[in-house]
């Protein structure tokens, strides 16, 4: 006799906790063929606001953690993802309607990408920083630092790999993140938040919202306490308006991407969300 399954309640992930949307709204997540999978929380602008507050308060701890520590924490996520491979594969098969092997490939690539980015945490400063030979008695050093709170629209047509491809590089430098998951394929994002919650990532470092990107993103684009806006997955939105809104506080904006190598792994994705700080100090024997 077959056992009756226990379905999961899919909620938001804000400040290390799993709240329902303050609006009380949910929306139906369905399979590719339209069958009901789950009710996901439909985040509101107030949820987005709470997520920014959580991200801001987590920023200093995460940004000031040692690079080695950040690298280990990120690597730990890959370890935990590995342990939950089967769960992610199942969710991707059911929501994307792809074969188990395709879903497996996606999960494996996502995990490998985490590992790749985790290894950058204690190296990107060396590669992109600079000792500057100024003509004078000064020590002069340029180093990249995290930009701050990054709002991200995740790729809409990928459950896990797209999400990982935008979230991981933002975390490497020490930014904190508010990410809007794929509206149609949010299950992996919610499961990822369960991974994050049980990993060593401090609460608030990653905040995951599900719901309508079109509804929430404008609030994040115009939010004065958001430092950067990654529109990688926003091609289908009115992204020009979002970029214009972001200009009000001169946010750093990553424009939407398309094509098959969407958010391909690159050092540029890390450095695009950093600021170069140059420090001068006088230098003298006497």
């Amino acid at each position: 006799m077959s056992r009756l399954a226990v379905p999961k309640t899919y909620k938001l992930y804000i400040g290390g906790k799993f709240p329902r949307s303050e609006s009380g709204r949910t929306y139906e997540v369905v399979t590719k063929r339209g069958a009901f999978l789950a009710n996901a929380a439909k985040a509101s602008r107030k949820d987005a606001r709470d997520a920014v507050v959580a991200a801001r308060s987590a920023l200093s701890g995460w940004a000031n953690a040692t690079p080695y520590n950040r690298g280990q924490v990120l690597y730990r996520i890959a370890e935990l993802l590995e342990g939950r491979r089967a769960q992610f594969v199942d969710e991707i098969v059911s929501s994307e309607g792809v074969s188990a092997s395709a879903a497996t490939r996606q999960v494996d690539e996502a995990i490998d990408r985490w590992v790749w980015y985790a290894g950058w945490a204690d190296k990107y400063v060396q590669v992109t920083g600079n000792a500057n030979p100024v003509s004078g008695p000064y020590f002069n050093l340029s180093v990249p630092e995290p930009t701050g709170v990054v709002a991200i629209v995740a790729p809409q047509d990928s459950s896990l790999l797209g999400l990982v491809s935008v979230v991981a590089p933002a975390l490497v430098a020490g930014n904190t993140v508010v990410v809007i998951a794929s509206e149609r394929l949010p299950l992996s994002a919610i499961s990822l938040s369960e991974v994050l919650a049980t990993s060593d990532v401090p609460g608030g470092v990653v905040n995951i919202l599900t719901g309508s990107a079109g509804e929430i993103t404008p609030w994040l684009a115009s939010h004065a306490d958001v430092n950067a806006l990654d529109l990688t997955g926003a091609a289908a939105l009115d992204w020009v308006d979002l970029e214009i809104a972001a200009a009000d506080t001169l946010k750093r904006v990553l424009r939407p991407e398309g094509g098959t190598d969407l958010a391909a792994p690159s050092l540029d994705r890390i450095t695009a969300l950093t600021e170069t700080k140059t420090v001068w100090h006088t230098k003298s024997l006497i």
Partner: peptide, 24 residues
């Protein structure tokens, strides 16, 4: 293009990107 401040010339096409393609 580069990652910063340069949009995809085929930005509107990105919506049709499938998971299969990006996973390969």
């Amino acid at each position: 293009r580069t990652v910063t401040a340069s949009p995809a010339s085929d930005a509107t096409d990105s919506a049709i990107t499938t998971t299969k393609e990006s996973a390969k």
